[in-house]
Amino acid sequence: MNILVGISQVPDTATKIAIGADGTSIDTKGVKFIVNPYDEFALEEGLRLREKHGGTVTAVSVGGESAKEVLRTALAMQVDKAILVKSEVNGDSFAVAKQLADVAKEIAADIVLFGRQSVDYDSFQVPPMVAELLDIPSITMISKLDIVGTSVTAERDIEGGKETISASLPCVVSAQKGLNEPRYPKLPDIMKAKSKPIEERPASTIAARTQVIGLDLPLAKGKGTILGDTDADITELLKLLHEEAKVI
């Protein structure tokens, strides 16, 4: 089975985000980058598919030089091959999806796995876009995956329940938390990954179809007021809601 896993590098989820001078991207100074947490589930699932069905797992990332770090992590987790599609510009979801679809086509991927979203820009768009570009089925946010022959059965969490979906290979899936428990890379494998090759190729020129024109931080939270629970406090609460918050 030819397994392709798309991974991206995102700021550590504990990072305090600051907006860059251009007003349309985040300031990366001092930011610790990590593998997009949802991509870890995709990576783990790719490795498990290889354990079950044989084949090779290729990890691919679109990004700058620093994206090599997440590919090193993938190599430490024992993917067979790592590809960096080198692009220093922040393309939109479509531009990224096009690069990834080209790689999937080139290696004749039977299955392409992604995290459900990358937790930096949260667009959720790349996995279904890649499927569309390849004209193959897409199942998003899966929490269970079974493949027998070319038949794919996946479960999705939906509001208040579960949905079971079938499709056939080749296809694209995106991973939800709970799909599996990602393994720890072993320390000897981390050391070996250091000297494994990362195939680098320039990104093809894809015109972005959207453009970010502004980024804003959430508004600072105002100070709350805590009242007691006596009858007088209830009267006070009603008064505040009416006169200060003006919601009733």
């Binding site: 989820t13 504990a14 610790k32 947490p37 949802y38 990576l43 987790m77 393994r183 720890y184 890379p185």
Partner: peptide
């Protein structure tokens, strides 16, 4: 961070890192 999705806000870890 190593790939196990355990130590980030997505998982609501009890030992969340304060500040950077």
């Amino acid at each position: 961070m190593a790939p196990n999705g355990k130590n980030n806000s997505m998982n609501g870890s009890a030992t969340t890192k304060v500040a950077n």
